[in-house]
Design a protein around this nucleic acid. Sequence first.
DNA 1: TCCGCTTGTCATATA
DNA 2: CTTATATGACAAGCG
Length: 690
Amino acid sequence: MKYLKPWWSDGGGLLHLTILLSLAELHLDLDLDLYLLLPPPTRLWDELLLASGPTSSAYALSPFPASGVWGRADQLHPKGREPDPAAESAGRLLREVRALGVPFIPRTRVDAWLVHSVAAGDADGAHGLLGAAAASSAGGVGASVDDSSQAAPGDGGDPRAAASSPLDAGEEEKAPAEPTAQVLDAAASQENEVLGERHQEVGHSSQNKENEQRVSAQEKKLQHKNEDAHEAADKPDWEAEKTTESRNERSLNGTDTAFSLEDLFQLLSSQPENSLEGLLLGDTPPVSINDGMNSTHNVNFSQAISHDVNLHEAMLLCPDNTFRRDPVARTSQPPQEPFLHLNSHTNSEQTLPGTNWTGFLPLVGNQIHLTSEDLLHDLDINIFDEISLMSLATEEGFDPMEVPQLFQEPDSDSGLSLNSSHNSTSVTKSNSSHSMCEGGATGSSSDLESLSHHDLEGAVGGYYPEPNKLCHVDHRSDSGFHGDLAFQHLFHNHTYHLQPSGLESTSNSFSQYGKSQKIQGRCLNDTDRNLSRDERRAKALHIPFSVDEIVRMPVESFNNMLSRHYLTDLQMSLIRDIRRRGKNKVAAQNCRKRKLDIILNLEDDVCNLQAKKEILKRERAQYNKAINILKQKLHNLYRDIFSRLRDDEGRPVNPNQYTLQCSQDGSVLIVPKELMAPGHRKENQKGKTK
DNA sequence: TCCGCTTGTCATATA
DNA sequence: CTTATATGACAAGCG
């Protein structure tokens, strides 16, 4: 925060508050990270801090620049330490903030500007840059800034001037005439692009209306978010992940300017300022959509969070988003997507060079010739088998029982679970040999997809089977009917999507398979790419349940589910295999965890016991030392006593002939040693009492 | 190529 | 007997 001070100090009497609201209790499952521009301390100040709660952090910048106070809001205000607020409080608060027409935008957005401003060297420059940002956006990616905002750079980019934007005419009256307000507002509108809805002509009133409508829809969406929370939890993850993926792509493409402060400082230290400016500001569409009472805030609200996540993932965690690309999100492609889009990734490098799927099938051999060996590895043969299955499935008279024949391989047991054998043992055995699809790159051969796999390997070696052998789908695609159907099926059948949200196994399998699939087919549909083996099998057999369901469902529900659906023996067998493997996979993971815990606990025990042993050793040494001291003292005492003792005749007592004995009553006796035989001691002691 | 690690799977024991 | 779970053993993949 200290980096922001120069700029914020210039802000005058406004309270600049960044508040991170943890609204999990609202079932938003989101963290809000907003900048709020508020008038000098009001009740909202208290409530904002209150709403921040213990699970969130609120950063406040002093409303009084002279004070120079910077720090966490909860350190500036005692209420910040109060208990976590009720969800209603937070919701009500936000509504009130919105009602005040207080502009706010995600912190990350502000951070970007602020950091850039700091990099520019002075606070005034910051304003200038902010204005320039709007101006640059006009000719940049956004290309939508209105003319009035372009006039801002003339006076150093003072956003006050930019506030004359037609869009902000209404807002200008409600919001304080604060430079930051306008800029933030513009940034807030940019946030709306997260959903991929770019404003092309924001300055026009018609577009403005559309904007409002969209924003209103967003507001409704957010308002009902609480109600839909549970539904959202049940929704396929691809919906949410699609957004995330979209953001990732945007980030990687430089169309996302939501940077965290940390990210930006990393960039500051590594990039020339010019590039940084472009990075931060170049594509910032100065769209202002906040018209006061409307729901703009809520829009920013929800998008702010996603932006934050997006940025982090894109900037730090996902240098290569190949594998982070959500498989399911790909299915969000329009249903009309032809097979051509099987490899229509954002990253051109992920596409097959010079390859287009419409031409790929009939020309697959040539394409392999034309591409690198790496490409050959990328050709996951699985896709061919699945395509075949899908194609068959779309054909009239498709019989699932024919499927095993497709998978059967003469020289392997890869009848797999799909083998018509109902012997579960043989089925699972065959499955075990299927490390296959993932092992394709390494030449493992007894696979479900082995048919095509072998063909592919042959292709790698320089021999290319006949295209129709390699891709029996080709004939159907040639017809222009079956192929499309099959491909559309690949795209549109989302029934068996991998839902790794809760299933540990799936995520694990992804972690493993994802690596191998790195080499695996980019030919695969994005949906299929990250599907596990079982998921692909289930899909191939048209099993109407997801692997996740099959595995996690309680046995009663599982049986009910099976009874409710007509399933072939083959399907039943596969389902049970999937369930067994899924359960066992989780069990194995738990078992390993337990084993590790046990080992760790044992190691701890060993350490503790060793420590105890050392302590005991030291104690023993101390006791021995004390004993020796006592012995020495006793010895000295003996000598001293005997040196003073005299017998009846006044002669010194020889310590070698006598010994001292302590009686029970405390008296000390001098006893001749020869009389110290056990039976005689007591009697003689008394006679020799001194 | 070898080695160690991780993970999935199977077989088997146990509850 | 069936089912779920636990665990040893094995294999494959990866770095």
